[in-house]
Each structure stands twice: as structure tokens, then as C-alpha cells.
Amino acid sequence: MPHPGWSAFRFEGIGTHWEISTPVPLGPEVRRRVLDTVEEYDHTYSRFRNDSIVAALGRKPCSVSLPEHAAALHSVFASLYRLSGGAMTPLIGSSLERLGYGPDYALQPRGDAAAPPRWEDVLEWNGSTLTASAPIVLDIGAAGKGQLVDLLAGVLRSAGLDDFLVDGSGDMLHSGSQPVTVALEHPYDPSEAIGTVILDNAALCASAANRRAWGDGLHHVLDGTTGRPIQTVVATWTMASSALEADALATALFMVEASVLERAFSFSWLAVFSDGSARFSSAFDGTLFS
């Protein structure tokens, strides 16, 4: 939670709730820049908007140009696609829509689970340019909210603010001289916590199967090699220097052993499994309740 007495700027964006906490209220110009950044990101990447830039990739083979920060998104996705053997992929959107999680929010499967096309077969991603040789449904949700947290932190810093907490519905970035204590939401009961963690000038991101779940065992964390929901892991938390990496790694922990990820990224983590057990890294600065 932010420090007592801090001011909170709350708003909706990219389909979720946001709160930016600061020692003093944000001025009108900073608030406008925050909201403009969120709208630009949504207009660029949302697969739920027909007018988004990436929506063009789903209509026909084509190339699109994205903002410069797409290069950082590509770097993280490319690394995790390789480490996961294709299980974590930005092309998972077609599999999600097949299971009912599409722009119409039907939440009714259109057929059996199916893997998306392989990245190397249909998509060239060079920096901020994407070229698809066939219609694809790009979904950067595994890391996008984290990147937007980083971008909003950049807006605050450019306005001269050093003390803040950006919270995008559980994906957070803290900056300042006083750490904050954050509760870890119980994966089966959002009103309860399974522990707490100290967040100190770092990002904390979470992924949970219960956050976007529907039907019989259906949820949003899919294995890109099969198109099926992953059932062995139910919730993860990661801490890293950037929310982009923390967000992506929280999803990757559903499908890749932590030891493999730790060889490529600097982060700490906690994972809760479907059998009720939990594992965490030695550097995870938190406390689990008994």
C-alpha cells in the first residue's frame, strides 16, 4: 500500500483499473500526459479495438510501424519465446479467441483448443516494424501492461517526480526513499492475502489463472505449443528493475522452470502451484502467511 497521506490519481485504461500514488496531487498537465500515454498504448496494441494499429495484422498480410518502445517489447518476447520452446508467444491471441476470449467477450469456445502459428513462420519483428505473411492476432498482454507501467513512470520522472507508486491492478513500480509493503492476493480468494512483500525502487508484477477465467478450466494463460490453459501453476509474482521484464517473467513462470529464466534475467520470484505448494527464490523479499 502507498504511504499514508499520499494522493491517488485513479483512472481506467487498457481494460483495467489504475492508481498512481504521489506525496502531492498530480497537476492537470501531468494527468493529461498520463492519460494520453495510456490511450496511445491502447490504440497501438489492443486486440479488442478494430482501430488499433495491430488490428491491421489480423485482416490481411501487411506491415505496421509501432512506437520505438516496441523494440524493447520484441526483445523480451523473443528471448522468452526461445527459452519456452514457443510456449510463450505474442501470437497467442488466435488461441484465446478460439476459446472465447475475444473482442466480443463471448467467453464461449468456438472449438477445441488449437496452437497459434509459429512466430518464425508468419511474423518478422524488426525493432518497431512488424511484417506478417498471413493474418495473425497479436497479443502482447503477457508483458504489455508492465511496459505501460514503465512508460507512466517515465512520464512522472520527466515531470520531476521521484517518489511514486504506479499500480496497474497489481503490476506495480515503486520509486522513492521509503519502501512500501504490498499484499500478495490469494489466488482463490481475492479478499485474502497469502503474504506480503517489500517493494523498494523496483517493479512487482503478478499473473494468476483466476484473474481472467471462464468456463470449465478455461483461463487466459495458455501454452503456445498447444493452445490449452496451463493447469500446474495458479499464481506467480516477480520482482525486477523494470515492470516490462517483471510482467513477462510472471507469465513465463507458468511454462518455464525458474532456473532457466534466472540464467537470462535478473529477478526474484514466487510461484504457487495447483497442489497448494509454493516455491520462491532466495532473493524474494517477502513473507508468506502460514
Rank of each mutant, 00 (worst) to 15 (best):
P2F: 01
H3D: 00
P4Q: 14
W6M: 08
S7P: 01
S7Q: 13
F9P: 01
F11L: 10
F11P: 10
G13Y: 08
G15W: 09
T16C: 11
W18A: 09
E19W: 01
S21T: 03
V24C: 00
P25R: 11
P25Y: 11
P28N: 11
V34R: 11
D36G: 04
T37M: 14
V38Q: 06
E39M: 12
E40V: 05
D42N: 09
N50E: 15
N50H: 12
D51S: 09
D51C: 03
S52L: 10
I53D: 07
I53T: 15
V54K: 08
V54F: 08
C62T: 14
S63M: 02
V64W: 06
S65H: 13
A71F: 04
A72E: 15
V76S: 06
F77C: 05
A78K: 09
A78S: 14
I92A: 09
G93D: 04
S95Y: 01
Y105P: 00
L107A: 06
L107Q: 13
Q108M: 09
P109H: 01
R110K: 04
G111Y: 02
D112W: 05
A115F: 03
A115P: 03
P117G: 01
R118V: 00
W119G: 00
V122D: 03
L123M: 09
E124Y: 00
E124A: 13
W125Q: 05
S128T: 05
T129E: 15
T129C: 14
T131D: 00
A132F: 05
G141A: 11
G141M: 08
A143N: 08
G144L: 13
K145A: 13
Q147C: 02
V149G: 04
L152M: 12
G154E: 12
V155L: 10
V155W: 09
L156G: 02
S158A: 15
A159L: 04
A159K: 06
V166I: 15
V166N: 12
G168A: 15
S169F: 12
G170K: 07
G170F: 05
G170R: 06
L173Y: 04
G176D: 10
V180K: 09
T181F: 04
E185F: 08
E185A: 13
H186L: 03
P187I: 07
T196E: 14
I198A: 13
I198S: 14
A206T: 15
A206D: 10
A209I: 11
R212A: 02
A213I: 09
G215H: 03
D216C: 00
D216K: 09
V221K: 00
V221P: 03
L222N: 01
I230D: 02
T232G: 09
V234N: 03
T236N: 02
T238Q: 08
M239A: 06
S241G: 14
S242N: 08
L244Y: 07
E245Q: 14
E245A: 12
E245T: 14
A248P: 10
L249M: 07
L249I: 12
A250H: 01
A250W: 03
T251Y: 02
M255D: 05
E257K: 09
A258L: 03
L261A: 07
E262T: 13
E262P: 05
F267M: 06
S268V: 05
L270Q: 05
A271S: 14
A271Q: 12
A271L: 04
S274Q: 07
S274D: 11
D275P: 07
G276K: 02
R279T: 07
S282V: 04
S282K: 08
D285H: 13
S290A: 15
S290T: 14
